[in-house]
Amino acid sequence: MAVDMSRKGDIEEELKSLKDVLSVAQVVVSSLDLDEVLQNILYSAMAVMDMPAGSIALYDEPLGQLSLHAHAGLSDQFLDRYRWPVKDGSMIRQVLDAGEVFCLENVGSSNGVDDGLVLQEGIQALVAVPLKIQNKIVGLICLDDFAPRTFTERRLNILSILASFAAMSIDNACLHQRTHHLAVTDGLTGLYNQRQFRLMLKEEMVRARRYGKPLTLIMFDVDDFKAFNDTYGHFKGDQALVAVAEILRESMRECDMVFRYGGEEFIAILPETGLEVALTAAERARRSVEEKSLDYLRGIAERGLTVSIGVAAYPEDGLDRDALLHVVDALLYKAKREGKNRIYHQKPEV
């Protein structure tokens, strides 16, 4: 009878383990958003091991480095290290190459930790789980406790199964992210495309109306681009567009959004920005293209490029998306008709 009861207890424990694995798997594969996937994986792993802290880093194989993408329960000082190289012979290198769950129940009594930040953080016990698909290293889960402890085989087994689901889920999310990026960006310049511009302008105008904030559009057109193409060829013309895109990206503020609108036209959304500030930004961009484009095109062309610019502000120049686009487009072509390499905006009525 005692044997039967013991067997019953083992079966119940196995069933509980299977339920835990199923529960974890459902959470891990429930999203394709990479940030959400990583956070779900981390919290699931922490729950499985009953650990108060942890992190997930993704592995960049060409660079041979890890980058932190999800974390919980760790100090700002510890998190300052966003990227770090995986050095040959290091503990992390050995863990990644072995591809198995690695644990230290008492960091203080082990010589296996070669990371000063781990010791400085006061971590006393840790579990490191490589995330691999076949021979490809995806990343690393690290779970931490601030006191020595014992890890049960049952929990480690569940964590190992979780890591398998996690690696597949992360790989799928990364693929989804890359696919989405291709759908919303211009293949030549890497800027957002016109489709994404229209979506983001709609969102920004809703915000501007809701909170009573200004918003400005700056539209750019490369001057005499057809002549440039005819002189140097379409391949070098493409290189010229890439150069202009890079100069515009560098000259605008971090909060501004620059898009390739089509052909040789670019457009920028400046959220929460009035006309005067936008005109200053437009002049900075115009001057940057004029002064820097020849350096970007050295060895490609004997002359640099200039841009004509139109600037339109919400709400003064239009109360909806189409009205604002109509105004900024008209102002751009006025700049081109009246001399090029200049900026036009609507003068406020007195």
Rank of each mutant, 00 (worst) to 15 (best):
S90Y: 03
S288Y: 04
F146M: 08
G64L: 02
L248D: 09
E283T: 02
L42C: 07
P130Y: 09
A98C: 05
N229W: 05
I158N: 13
C255S: 13
M252H: 13
P315H: 12
T152Q: 05
H234Q: 04
H176A: 15
A53R: 08
L305R: 05
D35M: 09
L58K: 09
S288D: 03
C174E: 15
S75P: 04
L143A: 10
E283G: 06
P148I: 01
N193L: 08
E105G: 12
G318Y: 10
E246A: 13
A163G: 05
G122F: 03
A240E: 02
D171F: 00
D256Q: 08
A268P: 04
E121L: 00
Y261I: 08
T231M: 02
A173N: 06
Q194F: 14
N111Q: 14
T179E: 08
L279C: 07
T231C: 01
V258R: 02
L131H: 10
E291Y: 02
D97A: 13
N229Y: 03
S67K: 11
F266Q: 07
N157T: 08
E254S: 09
A301T: 01
A313G: 12
G112V: 14
Q177E: 14
R253K: 13
L117I: 12
E349I: 05
L119T: 11
D144Q: 11
K334G: 06
Y296I: 00
E302H: 07
F266E: 01
H180C: 02
T179H: 10
T185W: 04
I133R: 08
Y43F: 14
N341E: 01
L241R: 00
L119R: 14
I170F: 03
D224Q: 12
T189Y: 06
V29H: 09
S6A: 09
R195Q: 07
A173V: 01
A166D: 04
L131M: 05
Q346M: 11
S164A: 14
H345N: 08
T216E: 11
S23E: 14
Y59S: 11
F266W: 04
M1N: 03
P148N: 03
L143N: 09
R321E: 15
K16I: 05
A72W: 09
A128F: 12
L182V: 13
N157A: 07
V222E: 01
N106K: 13
I137L: 06
I267K: 07
R303Y: 02
L74S: 12
G9K: 13
T231E: 02
Q196A: 12
A323P: 12
F266I: 03
I158Q: 15
G54D: 07
K213M: 14
G122L: 09
M168Y: 13
L42K: 04
D76T: 01
S109R: 15
